[in-house]
Design a protein around this nucleic acid. Structure first.
Lengths: 194, 194, 194, 194
DNA sequence: TATGAATGAGGTTTCATTCAT
DNA sequence: TATGAATGAAACCTCATTCAT
């Protein structure tokens, strides 16, 4: 069969269900049904319900990180890189709004319940942005007195908030605008003042 | 007796419990116990568990809005106002990290389940920031080609993300830094480029 | 004040509420509200919720018995008496359908939970009908080989079933018909066959 | 396994428990225990507690109706049919007093809360008796000026009342007597007077 | 691997009853 | 007597998880 593996189907179904109802209001049986498997089958692939969420989160973060690294590869300036970072993130949101919603919401919700592994996946993603900032500072493009990690987090919060607004609204044309405005604010915000 | 009203005690207890365990992992009986009332008493003041969360959210948003309006009153420039807006928000977080955490996390979680009333409370808060941006544009302080509402949302996301990081970490000195860096990035980001 | 005593008001309110929602679906607070007293006041007059029902039942049975005795007093033949018994019962139903419904329904529902006292009140009412039958048999009006108590019960069941149908329907003109048909069937049924 | 289905076991257990404690005083967990299943299993077969009662009611009514139709099939006169109708009803009561009690009691209790479906099951049963009366009238056996439906209801009330008395007493020999006396009263009552 | 019927722990909520005023 | 806010026991029901097939 050339259809995705069961494990994959379960994860995809989970994204769909979790984004529609929220993690705590989703039932495992709903996910099973959406995945076209029996309830019990879920437990052959995941220890429990929470493990599905964790996996969705990690998978997505890693995929995003990977996409970012590929897109950033070869770019010269930090300015270009930051622009790209924001664009890639919004592209993911644009292509998969449900996934974005799950990420964004559950990242918070689960918060302190997240395992270290998950925080690390998130940390790696933030690290990409932080590195861009640091590079920009080293190259003299960005103000040197901002803490890269903090800026990265701020940037993520801004992007994420706009993503959520976008995912929850019906006006699907906002991505482009969200992208350009975020870039404008942050690039200006980070630019070295002479 | 000069102690707070039962209703108030329940709300305070809810913030404590919700922030510690998350809304869905909190039990009404825990809230009752923390409030020093019987389980049933909760239901004299709130229709159900969710109504407590909603109320916490609305109360806080209104209080924050009110604090902002007072702090902003009399300020001249949009630049000053934006700086103040960020400061007031972080001050609240600094004084009441648990409350901030509940707000920030549950705002997302409940997301689309939120009632109009709640979205409106949130919308009013955003409106304050949006108006500052618009005023700044009208006065020539800020770039005119940014959409105030979008910027307000971006700003909220950034602040909120830093708040969450801060609330969940033990290093309580970050507030001051978070404030100053946010202000720097956003003020520069919004400034009119000549 | 010339209004009814609180105790009376509570009983009347109970009849209204119990008939509308059924005993188990009625809340004490509803009864209190309908009676215009505080919840706690109920417990100054009745030991508990069930005691209200019991009292309603006993009161009504005694009142019915009393009405029957007055109506029957002076009548000569058992035939006349039986006719009157049926008429008086249906008159009560006609005047106070809610009361009838409570009686009829709760008599069954409470069934084995009823105290002896209540069964005795009911027994006394049945006794009136049974005595009529026995007198009719002694006078040669009715067949001698029917057990009066059994017939009384049968009669009560028949009347009661029609009452219930009537109380629950909107067609309030049936009482007269129910009366005449019941009398016809039972008088013929009891008549001595030669 | 040749033992009854779980669904069947639950219904049987419900009859036992409901008749012993009354519907509102019965706990779902009691029914589950009596049926030998877990509490949750009940909800795989019934939407909620009330649905069990409804099902018991409908099942029994249909079974009774079916029994009646089979017993009546082939009988010639309405007199014979009426006699049979009463006998079959009392036989059911004699074989399954608990079931009878649940029926009789809860039929009233639930009263106006009953769904149309249930009233229809009851209506069909009444219809059988009503048809007998109508046939008897058409054949000249019974007085033509009684309304069949009303008489059917009266008959049901009488039978039912005796059933209840019987179910609640310990003297289990009364069925035969109840049968013969009911038949006597009603047949005479309905007979055409010349 | 896959199923899905069965489990049973446990939470939210109701409401009869109490008691301080 | 009267109040009504407060109590807290208890029940219905849900649903994540298991396990016999």
């Amino acid at each position: 069969m050339e259809q995705p593996s069961k494990r994959r189907r379960i994860l995809d179904a989970a994204v769909e269900i979790f984004s529609r109802y929220g993690f705590y209001n989703s039932k495992v049986s709903q996910v099973a049904k959406a995945a076209g498997v029996a309830d019990g089958t879920i437990y052959l692939y995941f220890k429990n319900k929470e493990a599905i969420l964790i996996q969705v989160f990690e998978d997505t973060m890693e995929e995003l990180s990977s996409k970012q690294r590929m897109a950033l590869d070869g770019l010269e300036t930090a300015t270009d890189k930051l622009r790209t970072f924001v664009r890639v993130h919004f592209e993911m949101v644009g292509r998969n709004p449900e996934l974005a919603e799950v990420l964004t919401v559950e990242l918070r919700q689960s918060g302190k319940f997240m395992r270290d592994a998950d925080m690390r996946a998130f940390g790696r993603y933030l690290g990409i942005a932080a590195r861009i900032v640091a590079e920009g500072q080293a190259a003299g493009e960005f103000s040197p007195d901002l803490r890269p990690r903090r800026v990265a987090r701020m940037l993520f919060g801004a992007i994420d908030e706009l993503s959520l607004e976008w995912a929850m609204s019906a006006r699907r044309k906002l991505v482009e605008e969200a992208y350009s405005q975020t870039v404008r604010v942050f690039l200006n915000g980070l630019n070295r003042k002479e």
